[in-house]
Amino acid sequence: MTFRDHAPLSVLDLAPISEGSDPAAALHNTIDLAQHAEQWGYRRYWVAEHHFAAVASSVPALLIGQIASATRSIRVGSAAVQVGQTTAVSVAESFGMLDVFHPGRIDLGLGRSGQRRAEAAATPAGPVAISAPTPSRLVDGVVIPEPLDVTALLAHSPLARSFEVLTQPGAQPPDFDEQVDDILSLLDGTYTSPSGQELHAVPGEGADVQVWIFGSSKGQSAHVAGARGLPFAANYHVSPGTTLEAVAAYREAFRPSSVLAEPYVVVSADVVVADDDDTAQHLANGYGQWVHSIRTGHGAIEYPDPATAQPLPADQLALVADRLETQFVGSPDTVVQRLAALGRLTDADELVITSVTHDHADRLRSHELLAKAWGLI
């Protein structure tokens, strides 16, 4: 499928907590943004899963139910459930229940972070040095940074050591492909337990949910999505240096299925849109500090006020340089041009945007301006 400059746009939301605000306000803002996104023509509204951070999207299934109840037609889903921290049965039953109340509107996005985090934790601890950023490539108008490996940094950070409470003591994340297989089997009614017993998820079996695989590299997630003929979401906004190889690996591994006859790719981008470039740049001030808090493993800080956010020193800037230069910031025309270039380069079928600002009104305006410039309204 060839990318169209005005292919569908969707929204990814973390329910960020702004500096001086609280989780309750963040969650109410999420509902408000979802209602506006539906009015403005966005196709989907996805929520992320994060823990021990200043974002309120910690329980995707519960938040999805609230969003779906407050909207009428927009698809609502997870981006993504971290399956290494739960069981296949829990996932199938939770999303089966969502489908009962909101039939045909639920997307079940699955992510490998739990397993990946366990693998990273097994790496030897030691000093981690982040060198000066390597010059990025400009490929057909899209910035492609050199991949930044922060595995050791995240594996031995204060936040990483707290993840042990997300699973039962002694529990080991199962293989991602095996867990995806279990979830699909529970949904289609063919699941058999390790002991050979047929089991049926109630609710869950027969649920009309759309299963997605999310990935940031050419690793297991891309291969699982392709081999199983499932749609794939590539995280340019998280790992811009590995997006092209992730999409290529997915397409190479793709096999037609009852779900898809050909690959279907969604690519994410982080955007801030305002009436003019200068205003957008001001609103994006503080993004670097926010990303730095995530990448150093301390968890996202409350999103800074752009009026008081302080510039990052050079050593901290090196850790987030790839994210800063791949954030799409500017007027509607500026951002549309960059999004279209990303879509053409990746041959995406759809783009999903995440837009975070300190003030909720500015975040609403960012989504509205983009929807109008993209032709959704």
Rank of each mutant, 00 (worst) to 15 (best):
V291E: 11
G196A: 04
V76R: 02
A7H: 10
F52E: 01
A160S: 15
G241A: 05
L27F: 03
A53Y: 00
A222R: 07
R105M: 04
Q281E: 14
F163V: 11
P23G: 05
L260D: 05
G229K: 08
S136V: 05
H360A: 13
A56L: 04
E178D: 15
D5Y: 06
T357E: 04
Q289V: 13
R117E: 13
A274V: 02
G343E: 05
Q179A: 11
A261K: 14
Q179D: 08
A80T: 11
V83R: 01
P304V: 06
Q85F: 15
A274E: 06
P203I: 02
S221N: 11
F214V: 14
G77Y: 05
Q197Y: 11
L138G: 01
A253E: 09
H51S: 03
A300G: 13
P173V: 12
A274Q: 02
S90D: 13
Q310T: 15
A201Q: 05
Q39L: 15
P332S: 10
L244P: 00
E49F: 06
L324Y: 00
A227K: 14
A122T: 03
S18I: 03
S90T: 14
D188G: 05
A314G: 04
A26Q: 07
V336Q: 13
A341H: 04
I64N: 10
L110D: 01
A300S: 13
F101D: 06
S73F: 07
D99N: 13
A314F: 07
V76L: 03
P194Y: 03
V100K: 11
I144K: 01
V59C: 12
M1S: 13
E325K: 05
V259A: 13
G219N: 14
T308M: 08
S73V: 09
D305P: 02
D278K: 12
P194G: 07
T87D: 10
D149A: 11
R338D: 07
E198A: 14
G219S: 15
Q220C: 11
P133D: 06
G20W: 07
D347I: 00
L260V: 06
T334L: 12
R228S: 08
R116H: 12
L153E: 11
A261V: 08
V47L: 06
D277R: 12
R72P: 02
V272H: 03
L199F: 10
R116I: 14
D278A: 15
F232M: 06
D270G: 02
A222T: 10
V267N: 02
V335L: 10
S355E: 05
R75T: 10
A321K: 08
R255I: 10
V143F: 00
W374C: 04
T30V: 09
A88Y: 01
P174L: 13
V139D: 11
V273L: 10
L319W: 01
T296W: 00
P231C: 01
D149K: 07
R161K: 15
N29Y: 13
S21Y: 06
D347C: 05
T71K: 01
T134N: 09
V272I: 14
H237E: 09
F176Q: 03
P311K: 08
I106R: 05
V320W: 03
A300Q: 04
A92S: 09
E368K: 14
L345F: 03
